[in-house]
Structure formats: C-alpha cells, structure tokens
Design a protein around this nucleic acid. Sequence first.
DNA 1: CTTGACATTCACATCTATGTGAGGGTTTGA
DNA 2: TCAAACCCTCACATAGATGTGAATGTCAAG
Lengths: 144, 144
Amino acid sequence: MRIGELSQRTGASRRLLRYYEEQGLIVPTRSPNGYRDYDERYADRVLQIRGLLDAGMPTRIIKQILPCLRSPQDIHVADATPETIAMLEHERDRMTGRIQCLVRNRNAISGYLDSVRRAQEGAAEDTGFPSSGGRGPDAVLDHV
Amino acid sequence: MRIGELSQRTGASRRLLRYYEEQGLIVPTRSPNGYRDYDERYADRVLQIRGLLDAGMPTRIIKQILPCLRSPQDIHVADATPETIAMLEHERDRMTGRIQCLVRNRNAISGYLDSVRRAQEGAAEDTGFPSSGGRGPDAVLDHV
DNA sequence: CTTGACATTCACATCTATGTGAGGGTTTGA
DNA sequence: TCAAACCCTCACATAGATGTGAATGTCAAG
C-alpha cells in the first residue's frame, strides 16, 4: 500500500507518516520508483503510535519500546541490555502514573456529568425528551 | 505561600507556574507588593495540572475541565451549558481511549519484562543474586 | 502527448510547553 | 547600609509534532 492509502486508513496526514519514518518509528520499503510501500501491518502500527503520542509519549521513547511490543512470543532477549530493561521499567511506571491520573480525572468528570444529569432530570421533568443521552454511568474503573 | 515555595513543593519551575497562570489554569492572589500569593490548595492543583499535561491533555482543555472537578459536592449546574456538557463527554471519551491505549501498551511492556526475567532466571541460575527486582508481575489491569 | 492524481524532497511556518536572561523592585539579615 | 535571596515583567529561544508550499518526478487515462 502506498502513502495515500495508509494516510486514509489511519487518519494520519502523509506529512505525518513521513515524519514518523524520519523519527525511525516506521520503516517502509520502497518501490522501484521510490514510492514508499507499506505492509498491511503498518495500519495498526500507525494507530498505536498515534495513540501513544496522544497519551503523552514522545517519539523518542515510542521508538525504543515499539520493538519490544512487536513479536509477543519470540522476544529478542538479545536486545535486553540492562539499560533497556531499566528504561522499560521506568516507562512502565510512568505509564502507570498517567493511567492513574487519567482514571482519577475521568471518573471525576463522569461524576460531575452524572450530577448534572440528575439535577436536570429533577428540575425539569416535563420537557418532553429524556435527558439521558443513551449512555448510562459508564463502567467506572474505580478499582485502579 | 509565594512562588518559590510552590515551585519547590510541586517541582514546577517558577516560569512554569507563571505560564499556567497566563493560561488561566491558576489564579493566585497578590500581596500588596505584587508578589503572587498561593493558597495551600494550589499544591495539589498544580500536581493535577502537571499530571494531565503529561498525559497529553492540552492546557486549553485542562482550563475548561478544572472548574468542574473542583468542588465535588456543590456542582455549579449554572456552568452546565449544553456545549460544556458535550465537551466534557467528548473529553471523557478521549480519556477513556488514552487509558485503554496506555493500559494495553503498559501490559505489553510488563509482559515483555516478565519474559526477559524468566529467560534470564532460566539461563543463569547460580549468579548468586536473585534477579527478581522485588516487584513481581504487577496488578495488570487487564479488565479495562 | 498532455492532464490530473499521486509521489518525492526540502524548507519554512506554527503552536505548545518550556528554558533562560535582562533589567529592575523588595525583603531580610549581617 | 549593603548583600543575598527573593520577587516582578518582558522578551527571546528551543524542542517536538504538525501544517503548508515549492519544485519536481511518475503513472494512468483521455
């Protein structure tokens, strides 16, 4: 697949896909004419990269951890230098911190939304439309 | 408390505290001499801001959601315009997405580390020191 | 053969979160 | 009274993720 299709399928601009490559996050092969040629797996990979970036992970780190996440069964223990291990443990802990922060704050938002909804339902019972937007109080993850 | 103490207590540089103020995230009072004067509560608040920033939340959004997270019991339903509600629901969903992404990837890292640890323990059983760093396979959150 | 859609590289622009320094007040303690 | 350690504002600098545009090459269809 060429860059245009991957761009459509992932929502990442062409520019961005080239940027990820420049940062060493993806390494597409090249067609004889010089066009980038992306394997199917890159779609998922790009989505994963975008997710991590959006969650505050810089490309520098993503580049380091991606190889360890790539083949779940046959891990390259060769890559496992003590520094790599330490880095991974550190990043794992930072991610845990981020998760906790996000969960706490997201639950607070959910709580606020629930309160507002309840207040509105109590205040105006006859507006003709039920104010519940369909999605009830979601599974709240408070066990984290 | 003045900016220096808050800086020490939060780990945020003075410059950064002024920046957060410029962005409307915190609004300290001023002493007669013009120095910023921070209430105790700002310590937690700044840590919360830093956590959200680190988790990929931009200041623009943090500024919007912070007031809703401030007083849990007496919510200002006044602020609850439909746009605000929609924004909060949207952010809540984005946060859920980030949480899922982080959890998935963190679990993958944990899995990799566990594999490496097992491989090393199996390979060198008599190095004299146990390679378990103390923290076993952590509570993995795979129910998210 | 030309046109349009796609690709390439290179480079400059932008926004956000920060650092850093200049130039200048205030407070505190020797 | 002087120095050290605070504080202020203003402004320029930087790094990372992205947008945008210029100048050019490739390929498929009319």
